[in-house]
Design a protein around this nucleic acid. Structure first.
Length: 113
DNA sequence: TGCTTGACAGAAG
DNA sequence: CCTTCTGCCAAGC
């Protein structure tokens, strides 16, 4: 056998993408969650970067509340300043360092899907 | 085939 | 707080 590290088959990639979009669609207004949490729930804990890639390049993702996805430190997506505006509009509080107050707004989805 | 690029995470200085 | 590095992995070139 080849010693491939865990690699996603096309089917798994599809399932992963669907799970990511499904989870994001469930983030409540005024709450945020992280790339890592989403990746873990989708079944691929080491694929947090793929979550960001999926949200950015999947057509139709704009219709979902992807502005409610931030990194673990509460930083918003680089190059998307409007994300801050959208979050503030729904009452999300930013700390003085410019990061989302995760202690107050983090939403940790449970095993659903 | 190999190197570079990220909407990440974590550690180090 | 910030920068830089390593580990991570699919995509692009």
């Amino acid at each position: 056998m080849h010693d491939y590290p865990d690699r996603m088959s096309p089917e798994q990639a599809r399932a992963f993408r669907d799970a990511v979009l499904n989870i994001v669609s469930q983030i409540p207004r005024g709450r945020v969650t992280t790339y890592g949490h989403i990746a873990t729930l989708a079944g691929w804990p080491s694929h947090s970067r793929m979550v960001g890639r999926t949200l950015r390049y999947t057509p139709g993702a704009e219709a979902l509340p992807c502005h409610r996805v931030v990194n673990k430190e509460g930083r918003t997506a680089p190059g998307w300043s409007h994300q801050r505006t959208l979050l503030k509009e729904e009452g999300v509080h930013f700390k003085t360092n410019g990061h989302v107050d995760m202690a107050q707004h983090l939403w940790e989805p449970s095993i659903e899907i």
